[in-house]
Amino acid sequence: MKNIKIHTENMYLYYGSKMALNNISIDIPENKVTALIGPSGCGKSTFLRSLNRMNDLIDSVKIEGNILLDGINIYDKNIDVVSLRKKVGMVFQKSNPFAKSIYENIAYGPRINGINNKSELNDIVEKSLRNAAIWDEAKDRLHDSALGLSGGQQQRLCIARTLAVNPEIILMDEPASALDPISTSKIEELIVQLKENYTIVIVTHNMQQAARISDNTAFFYLGELIEYNKTKKIYTNPDKKQTEDYISGRFG
């Protein structure tokens, strides 16, 4: 694999004294979609959140090992977490637009980065909404409350909001788990388009979804990385028995 974007090495994560991630070593390539699958509570969301240090918000979390982003250890004490999060954006499981207008939701990111020029902001808002494939639905109601959008639209708005700060990597934590099939397929299409310009790491419970959109798949189980390979290989001919059982639904 060339152009490794994120590289983790012997990474351990503890909640208090409980080990949540056990010796994770993984290489996430640039401009590809990497899917993390596994049963609930296996640590895939925890792993995802440690990639932009959202786990810092939880006091009891302790991390050992290295996570290298473009060769830089993001848990180094000289790292500016705020800039890191600009570089590594995140879309959450539950769509969480702010209680502001659609326009303000998108403009929030650029604004906190110091962009106040009205026309520049307008451009960014339009571009982000177009990239997130929600421009047509939202263009006539930019100044209406974002909470008036449907669930699928809200989630795409959240993606647009993430795109507006121009990150390099987008982390997605089950972005389509609460959506209907049509909204889900829209988001999946979107993800496939986005990988041209962004590196995407996505956590999903939907095995078909992982198979459809991802280039690489990592299977987590009980805090360990069981298998990581090309999606095709994982779904057709996995190396490990556990992976095969999980994917074929014969698990547990």
């Binding site: 932009n52 959202m54 918000l57 705020v82 800039s83 999060r85 600009k86 570089k87 954006g89 995140m90 959450f92 539950k94 969480n96 702010f98 209680a99 502001k100 929030y108 990111g109 604004r111 906190i112 980065n113 959240c158 909001r161 993430t162 700060v165």
Partner: peptide
């Protein structure tokens, strides 16, 4: 809490989050 997380994930500082997201909400 998701507002808070969303804002931080966009690269906002705590102060920016508190002022631009928490207070208006």
């Amino acid at each position: 809490k998701t507002y808070y997380e969303a804002s931080l994930a966009l690269g906002a500082t705590k102060w920016q989050t508190a002022f631009s997201v928490m207070l208006p909400a």
